[in-house]
């Protein structure tokens, strides 16, 4: 009986993790602009991977005592995901990526300014780097 319940919990965790990660990637694929795409992976994929890891933790803890190593990856993922999302958003603002026209609010960081590069080191083609 207890065995069945634990198996059910593991199965639920694995499927929920997969579903969350899939929805996150779906958001990454079909949302309109970069700032909106950032939401899917930073939240949903992190929780999806966290769910899968917890499912695997329960799976391996069934036989020989608690295995808490996988908790470390979960904690690490939850600490680092916001940091990389923040850095990505910062670099997108730095490149002045255009937000969707429906977006309200107009931050100073996105207003265009005069090009700082001299003529000979002007950006080539579409590349933002000189």
């Amino acid at each position: 009986m207890l065995e069945t319940i634990i198996e059910g919990v593991i199965a639920f965790m694995l499927i929920a993790g997969g579903a969350f990660a899939f929805i996150g990637s779906l958001g990454l694929t079909h949302l309109k602009d970069f700032y909106m795409r950032l939401h899917g992976p930073s939240k949903t994929t992190t929780l999806g991977v966290g769910c899968t890891l917890i499912g695997s933790l329960i799976y391996f803890s069934r036989e020989d005592g608690p295995i808490i190593q996988e908790l470390l990856i979960t904690i690490f993922a939850f600490i680092t995901a916001p940091v990389s999302a923040h850095m990505l958003a910062k670099s997108a603002l730095h490149h002045k990526l255009k937000p969707d026209p429906r977006t309200r609010g107009n931050p100073v960081e996105l207003e265009s300014e005069k090009p700082k590069h001299a003529v000979e080191e002007a950006p080539q083609g579409d590349s933002p780097l000189p």
Binding site: G17, G18, A21, G24, S25, L28, F34, R37, L38, P41, T45, T46, G48, V49, T52, L53, I73, A77, A81, S84, L88, S91, A92, H95, L97
Partner: peptide, 16 residues
Amino acid sequence: PDRILAVDTMYMNSIA
């Protein structure tokens, strides 16, 4: 940044 975000998500998924 789009590509970096995609690769970032890809490694998260590959962990799982």
